[in-house]
């Protein structure tokens, strides 16, 4: 089984306001097509870990590999490209460009990647919105839709470039159980049919139970 993401001996400290060892010797792998969830108490460092894995946070010790390539220490331009092409990120809170339409928000990462024509990108974006049951709001401005809708738009945006791995920080936190199930099914389908890897932080035990593996965190360590 091919390893997509690997963390080796990751340590992170916050130096302000006091020295705080937030991540302690994190080691784990995510394989291709694997759907893993991370659980743990609030404040145990799940989000912090996810920011490091997503290459946005470079202030850590240890080594990070994506597709067996060392990410740690790469230049910012390269990290941006990796985020754009290989990593889809769904935030704990929904983050959309509020002045743009839903469709434009979803299309943006693909436009940046510029591997496809605008028509193709638009077609794909509408397709992703349709899967998430929000096709009808494509033309609305991102500031004029509900919280649950925003979260699904963010998921559609994370999917647009067909990344190798999706990382989610409580991606279903704002959804009712029906839509939460829907998102879970989409994730499951993508991992099974397209070999997409998923690493999702969740507080929802039912959601976690249905995933392939639960990574339990406590006090900055991986417990199992």
């Amino acid at each position: 089984m091919k390893t997509i993401l690997e963390a080796r001996n990751i340590n992170k400290y916050f130096r302000k306001p006091v020295l705080f060892h937030v991540l302690k010797d994190i080691n784990f792998k995510v394989n291709q097509g694997e759907f893993a969830s991370i659980m743990g108490k609030s404040g145990c460092g799940k989000s912090t870990l996810l920011y490091i894995l997503s290459t946005m946070d470079t202030g850590y010790e240890g080594d990070l590999y994506l597709n067996t390539e060392l990410i740690t220490g790469q230049e910012n331009e390269k990290l941006s490209y990796i985020r754009n092409k290989h990593i889809g990120f769904v935030f704990q809170f929904h983050y959309l460009l509020s002045e743009f339409s839903v469709l434009e928000n979803v299309m943006l990462p693909a436009k940046k990647l510029a591997e496809k024509s605008i028509e193709e990108i638009e077609y794909n974006a509408i397709e992703k919105l349709r899967i998430l049951n929000i096709e009808h709001i494509a033309k609305k401005r991102a500031s004029q839709i509900s919280g649950g809708e925003k979260q699904r738009v963010a998921i559609a945006r994370a999917l647009i470039n067909n990344p190798t791995i999706i990382m989610g920080d409580e991606p279903t936190g704002n959804l009712d159980s029906q839509n939460s199930d829907n998102v879970f099914n989409i994730f499951k389908q993508l991992s099974e049919e397209q070999g997409l890897s998923l690493l999702v932080v969740t507080h929802d035990q039912d959601f976690a139970d249905k995933t392939d593996r639960i990574i339990q965190m406590g006090d900055g360590r991986i417990i199992n």
């Binding site: 941006s80 985020r83 092409k85 990120f89 935030f91 460009l97 943006l108 945006r157």
Partner: peptide
């Protein structure tokens, strides 16, 4: 600020 953070998170570089 928010927009800048989002853009960077989805793969726009500092230069962009």
């Amino acid at each position: 600020m928010n927009d800048i953070a989002i853009l960077k998170a989805i793969g726009f570089s500092g230069k962009d």
